[in-house]
């Protein structure tokens, strides 16, 4: 296996053009898959020496740009992310353990594609976009179109995610719940991320509800969110949204719970997370 350490995006893309080649962000997923012989690449392209892939800044007053190799630790401590996207800092601080967070990157976190991960639903609910660069050019893919299936994303093998941009919405209320009824140090059984804006009357102007752990990828509960928009949510409406989210989920049985339990928990935690958002 060959290792390359390019220092520019162009250099990285050139290397990625080789057969059976993989990009490495923090390598936490890659190393595990190598160890278990789930992958046997001929070449790894390390991204940690490409300066333009790092850094977190304000692209415009309305967008935060997060370089693909930003680590979860950087997301936890970035003053900008803490101020503009507190849910993202919080969710980053819950991932795995300190050693995973100090190495794993946002690029790896969205491309790895394990449905139980924390950042995908959080970024989905925040309306984030991935910027993809490849041999045939550049494009922006909203995360709602990015997660295609279990370990499958819109970024091709020869492409790079260079950055993730997240809209910065004034007055947005956000809340992420990570339900871990067994060990706290585990993937969530169910994750619920909600971002919403209210007008001065308390009417929901805009809402996005995203779920983790209950389908082959993180998913948006579009219908549940639509129920809330235009209303000052009553308990009945919140209950209806919870039920709608549960009906839209497609969980499977595993060690963390049966299909029916996870579905019921989507209902409970969607309701509770909506209430937490409304409470501010």
């Amino acid at each position: 296996m060959l290792i390359s350490s390019p220092t520019s995006v162009e250099g990285a893309l050139e290397e990625l053009g080789n057969e059976n080649t993989l990009a490495v962000g923090g390598g936490t997923s890659i190393a595990l898959m190598l160890k278990n012989r789930l992958i046997e690449p001929d070449r790894l392209v390390l991204l940690n020496k490409v300066p333009t892939l790092s850094g977190i800044d304000e692209r415009t007053s309305a967008t935060v740009r997060i370089g693909a190799t930003s680590t979860l630790l950087e997301l936890m401590h970035s003053p900008l992310v803490n101020a503009a996207l507190p849910m993202l800092s919080f969710a980053s601080s819950r991932v795995g353990n300190p050693r995973v967070r100090s190495v794993a990157t946002i690029g790896g976190a969205i491309i790895h594609g394990d449905p139980r991960q924390d950042l995908p639903p959080v970024l989905l609910s925040l309306g984030a976009t991935a910027h993809i660069v490849g041999p045939s050019g550049e494009r922006d893919v909203p995360l709602s179109e990015f997660f295609l299936g279990f370990m499958e994303s819109a970024a091709g093998e020869d492409e790079l995610v260079t950055e993730v941009t997240v809209p910065r919405v004034a007055g947005q209320r956000t809340h992420y719940t990570r339900f871990t009824p067994g060990s706290e140090d585990d993937y969530p059984t169910v994750g619920v991320a909600i971002a919403m804006t209210l007008d001065s009357e308390g009417t929901v102007r805009d809402a996005r509800i995203a779920l983790g752990g209950v389908d082959s990828t993180a998913i948006l509960a579009t219908e549940a969110a639509a129920l809330l928009v235009g209303h000052r949510p009553s308990d009945e409406l919140i209950a209806a949204a919870g039920q709608s989210a549960a009906e839209g989920a497609n969980p499977s049985d595993d060690q963390r719970g049966s299909e029916s339990y996870k579905r019921a928990m989507v209902d409970v935690w969607t309701r509770r997370t909506i209430s937490a958002c409304l409470a501010g």
Binding site: V24, G27, L32, L73, R99, S102, V103
Partner: peptide, 9 residues
Amino acid sequence: VPVASCIYL
């Protein structure tokens, strides 16, 4: 920063 050397290339 702390790193898990068992999954660090």
